[in-house]
Write a protein that binds this DNA or RNA. Structure first.
Lengths: 232, 232
DNA sequence: GCGGGCATGTACCAGATGGTACATGTACCA
DNA sequence: TGGTACATGTACCATCTGGTACATGCCCGC
């Protein structure tokens, strides 16, 4: 009976709790149960693992996923690479988890963005844009495109990010646009276009850093598309 | 006097000649001249190197830059990793060269796209779009975003690609739009917007593969922006 | 026909990497 | 108080990586 039995059960449902410090143990559970084991069927909690994941995302947002090594990451987070393997099962699975979490955050971001019906669409659109282009998010945007690229490249670890990256945004956008009185088919096309604009401009600002110019281009888009909507 | 003196002079100006087979020697020149040397000041020609570079780009377009290893690449191209180091000086420099070449191709692509003045702008715009969205280019598009991501991530090797990715396209686009009678400032904003649309839709089609939907979204953009142009 | 320089192959190396083995610390529950 | 399961630290290892050393093939100009 070798091996110690370790966690990384990939249940990871956890209820928020961002902004954690690194781990430094205390409570929580996990349970790798590598080959045999598989006891303790519970879905207790997470905590060192959760903190590690958040810290990892923070680190990747800052430094990118490119030269990622378990040792380097661990050193930056104040752990040992042993712990990363312990909690996540390995490098690839860590990245999978990161991609999943990023996807989750994207979804949450959209939920928070407030498409409350009834608000002035002109206002709503611009407030949406303002929230998405918040400079605070820049590192995460970069990480988003980093993982996006990985997924495009075929990296299965980042694949999960790609799954809903277009469709998931299309649905609410289409709904919003249709609510402005635009016929269904046209609304769907407009939504796809709007998403492309958002992604394209995000790339632009990440590349050039010229926020003012990008803002102007966005404003042009809003103007163009509003002009096409039926008058309220 | 150790070392054999090898090429990778990074002159690489070469006059086209795409579609070469792998190398398999024959003529050409290069000349690494690592530490001392530096003799033969000429800018003779290229050929094994050129072929290697083209083949590398082909391979990267297919497999991405992610797990790239000199040995793996060399095996795929039918050479030894020794030769890649010989001709390019090392892995990083190879990637730099790839990025530079991709940037060159982008520029050429734009030049070929025919913004001949006098042609019907409605036609010109759509022909531009058709050329850029040619399915044959898909792998190269993917590689483009792959390198783009690397650059965003701070990889100095891919940095050269990033330098002009936005501005270089903005200039001719602005010119084209201004030629439709749009005032200068607005034309610049429209150009930036159009570029964002192009990049965003390209990402979309790479992700979803739904060419028809993307074409419809593009068409929506053309319609919107044309409606805003002064009548001919 | 021969010499020099480009091109290539073979062998090798030091370093880093992901992962494993094993010993141990620690908190909670019975 | 003792046990059980999670958490962590210390070594260690096989493998692979980029890069180097060195010998040699091969073409072209003299």
């Amino acid at each position: 009976m070798p091996a110690r039995a370790e966690p990384h059960r990939t249940d990871a449902r956890s209820t928020e709790a961002r902004r954690a410090g690194v781990p430094r143990a205390k409570a929580g559970r996990t349970g790798e149960t590598r080959r045999a084991g598989e006891k303790g069927a519970g879905a207790r909690r997470d905590s060192p693992r959760r903190a590690l994941l958040d810290a990892t995302i923070g680190h990747l947002a800052e430094h990118g996923t490119d030269g990622l090594t378990l040792r380097g990451l661990a050193a930056a987070l104040g752990t040992s690479h042993r712990m990363l393997i312990y909690h996540f099962g390995g490098k690839d699975q860590l990245l999978v988890e990161v991609a999943l979490e990023m996807e989750r955050r994207q979804r949450d971001a959209f939920a928070d963005i407030g498409l409350a019906p009834g608000t002035d669409p002109r206002r709503a659109m611009r407030s949406m844009y303002r929230q998405l282009s918040d400079p605070t998010l820049t590192p995460y945007m970069r990480l988003f495109f980093d993982l996006y690229g990985r997924g495009l490249r075929g990296d299965p670890a980042a694949g999960s990010l790609l799954d809903g990256v277009v469709e998931q945004w299309l649905a609410p956008l289409t709904e919003f646009i249709a609510a402005q009185g635009v016929p269904a088919g046209k609304a769907a096309d407009d939504a796809r276009l709007a998403l492309a604009v958002a992604r394209g401009l995000a790339l632009d600002v990440l590349t050039t850093g010229d926020r003012a110019a990008v803002d102007r281009a966005a404003e042009r888009f809003f103007t163009l598309i509003e002009a096409d909507w039926p008058p309220a």
